[in-house]
Amino acid sequence: MEIDINCDLGEGSDLTSCERDALIMPFISRCNIACGAHAGTPAIMRRSLENALQNNLIIGAHPGYPDRENFGRKSIKVPLSELLNSIHEQIERLQNLTREAGTKLDHIKLHGALYNDVEANMDLAEEIIALLSREYPSLKIIGLANAAMEAVATKQSRIFYREGFIDRQYLNTGRLAPRSLPGSALSDIDNCLERAVALAKGSSFTSYHGTPLQFSVDTICLHGDNPEAVNIAQRLASYLQLNGLSIHS
């Protein structure tokens, strides 16, 4: 039984951060590269692409709110047309670099507060899916399992990967617990590994408030900026194997 593992990368402040990202790459299936709005620079994007190609990773775009000050993790009020233009410009920026590198994008995954806002807002999800369908009809979409983005993408017959999180807590509703809640981000390696197996097998795990949750996913995310990301990634493959699982290749 295989499971896809994705990681948000290219989010550091300089090229040194790309070398840390590269330590994660041998242990995942695909990466989502920041496109210069919430994080990333052209140099970081190029190096991230080079490292991803060396590790045979599937490559996707990771656009977010244009808010570097808050790392795209704060909801901001921006006119819809401006937001859609920003998402388009971000994806184009990375897509142009992938062409230069002789490769292509496979998927799109929104970042941070934009990811969360879309998952709770059907109207916003419809607007963004319409943009992606118009401009990038061949690219897959990654989003939270059982939320608005999935519903809209399915309705429009888009290929959608249901995502679960190895290092984040969930509310009883199945949405991600806000980062403002203490302990909402998991860094304990054993807990993260157990969560990965539960998500991959569609078995039960507990929410932030202790309620059992159970659903299936197509891909599991490990955040590249998790302080234990490298250690988690390095132990993940062997732990999955012990539980009858392997990382999609």
Rank of each mutant, 00 (worst) to 15 (best):
A145L: 07
L139I: 07
L222N: 02
P42V: 01
I58S: 13
S216H: 12
H111C: 05
R99L: 15
A200R: 04
S184T: 01
T219W: 02
M149R: 07
D106T: 15
P42D: 00
K74S: 12
S203H: 14
L144G: 07
I44T: 05
A229G: 10
E11F: 05
G202P: 00
L110V: 04
N51E: 14
N191T: 12
A113R: 10
L124I: 09
L186F: 06
R73G: 05
R73H: 05
M1S: 13
V230F: 06
F71Q: 06
T16M: 13
G210R: 10
E119Y: 10
R179Y: 01
S138R: 13
F160D: 06
I142C: 07
I142D: 05
K201H: 13
S13Q: 14
H88W: 12
G210F: 04
I247P: 06
R195N: 05
A120L: 13
H88K: 14
V197W: 08
L181Y: 11
F27Y: 15
G102W: 01
M1V: 14
P182T: 10
G64M: 07
S13F: 11
Y136F: 11
E194V: 13
N56C: 07
E100V: 07
A37Q: 10
L124D: 08
R30N: 15
L53A: 04
G224T: 00
A52W: 00
N243E: 03
L240Y: 10
L94N: 02
L105K: 01
L15M: 03
H38V: 02
F215H: 09
H88D: 15
L213W: 02
T219P: 07
L193C: 10
K109A: 02
Y136A: 02
N6A: 03
R162P: 03
A147Q: 15
L245R: 06
P137A: 08
H62F: 00
A52M: 03
F71S: 08
N56H: 11
L114Y: 05
T219R: 04
S133H: 13
L213N: 00
N121K: 05
C192E: 11
R162A: 11
S75R: 14
I232K: 01
P227N: 02
Q241C: 12
A200Y: 04
I220R: 09
A52N: 01
L236I: 03
I232R: 04
E89A: 15
R46L: 04
I159D: 15
G224M: 00
C35N: 06
F205L: 08
H248D: 15
L242A: 12
R73K: 09
R99A: 15
S246G: 12
V197P: 03
N146Q: 12
R162E: 07
N121S: 08
E150W: 09
V118H: 00
P212E: 03
G36R: 06
H248P: 07
